[in-house]
Amino acid sequence: MKSFANKVIVITGAGSGMGRAYALEFARHGARLALNDYDPAGLAETVQLLQGSDAGTVFSQACDVGDRDAMYAFAADVKQALGNAHVIINNAGVGGGGQPVWAMTDADYERTLRINFFGVVHGTRAFLPQLLANGEGAIVNISSVFGLVGTPGASDYCASKFAVRGFTESLMVELEESPISVHLVHPGGIRTNIAKGAPNGEEFTRKFLKTDPAYVATEVIRCIRSGKQRIVLGHQSGQVWLLSWALSLERRNRLLYRMLKGMLDPGQYDRVRRRAS
């Protein structure tokens, strides 16, 4: 897909961060926008920022991407308001519980997977028939560099982002001979509020979340146009990508532990060390 003028672009998680950046960037290309977010206030703020832009019609609806029925209803409402979608960007996500495996609850895992993984599944499956009906389109699924390596205190988040990776890579093969392009994004440290409220969230944000979301939006649009399927970008993403394949798993795990040890709760890990000794 080369031009986005007057095309219907669906963006989940559009109330802040990368989702808002995608909306603003596609607006510059004259697209019609269908925006979703769980937070109605953030979504309304994005819609307000789009006023006076080059965007065509802007349709917005607040709902939970992890709710299958709500997402299918959103897809039907988008079709009624704007026509069939041309691009779906499954961007919505949460940061996870931020605790080691033994300190997490079942509810933590269920919530993170419901939003981060099943939100992508629901968004893809709800809008794919519209893309196919148009005879052209693109699916952009947002994983993470934590979909390339596992990190401490993020087992639920990593599991969800590895799942997005597996789902999307399978979809790429299935749609190989179709007019639909599929793109998998592994963002590194992007300056968003993903770590807000997490243990050591402020420190993590200060150290690692440095790349402007607008840069990500620009690069993703470029890759949709070129057909590039895997997109790894953002602060320290290159280093993580290298770690994911260049080192043995044992060496990689030791290195990651040393890098992140200072941000871990000593009390949680002291309990494990005592039991193992």
Rank of each mutant, 00 (worst) to 15 (best):
R275K: 09
G262T: 01
G97M: 02
G42I: 09
R271I: 11
G188P: 13
L175E: 00
Q229G: 09
Q48M: 11
N141I: 06
G17W: 06
A70M: 09
D77Y: 04
I139K: 01
V101W: 12
A76N: 02
G66E: 13
M263D: 00
S170A: 10
A23R: 09
L148E: 01
K7Y: 15
I115F: 13
F127W: 08
D270G: 01
E110M: 10
V182I: 10
S226K: 08
A159P: 09
R254L: 13
E202K: 05
R125E: 12
V145Y: 12
V272E: 12
M263F: 05
S244N: 03
R68H: 02
S16D: 02
G66Q: 00
D67V: 01
V216F: 14
I142A: 03
N116R: 01
A217D: 07
G150P: 14
A246P: 13
V87N: 00
A246G: 12
S3A: 08
Q236V: 03
Q268A: 09
G52T: 08
K261P: 08
T205V: 12
R252W: 08
P129M: 07
E177W: 13
S170Q: 07
N200R: 14
A21Y: 10
A217T: 10
L33H: 13
K161P: 14
V272M: 06
I115C: 15
R274D: 15
G42E: 03
G262D: 06
A41H: 08
S144H: 11
N200L: 09
P213Y: 05
R225L: 04
R20Y: 04
L264R: 00
T218V: 14
G97R: 08
Y257R: 05
L113Y: 12
S160A: 14
N134S: 07
R222H: 07
Y72C: 10
P152F: 04
D270H: 03
H183G: 14
G95W: 14
A27C: 09
R191E: 15
F26I: 07
L249N: 01
A133E: 04
G13A: 11
V120C: 13
A107P: 15
G238A: 03
A198Y: 07
T124Q: 02
L249V: 05
A70V: 01
S16V: 03
N141H: 08
A217V: 06
R225S: 03
V182L: 08
D39Q: 05
G42R: 00
Q99F: 08
Y72A: 07
S237L: 13
D54Y: 07
G95S: 12
A126R: 11
I88L: 09
V240E: 11
Q61C: 02
G201Y: 12
E177I: 14
V47R: 02
L184I: 08
N6V: 11
Q229I: 09
P213Q: 03
W245E: 07
Y157Q: 00
V140Y: 13
L49D: 15
S53D: 15
V140S: 14
G238H: 06
Y72T: 04
V220G: 06
Q236E: 05
R32Q: 15
K7I: 14
S244C: 02
G13H: 12
G97V: 02
E174K: 03
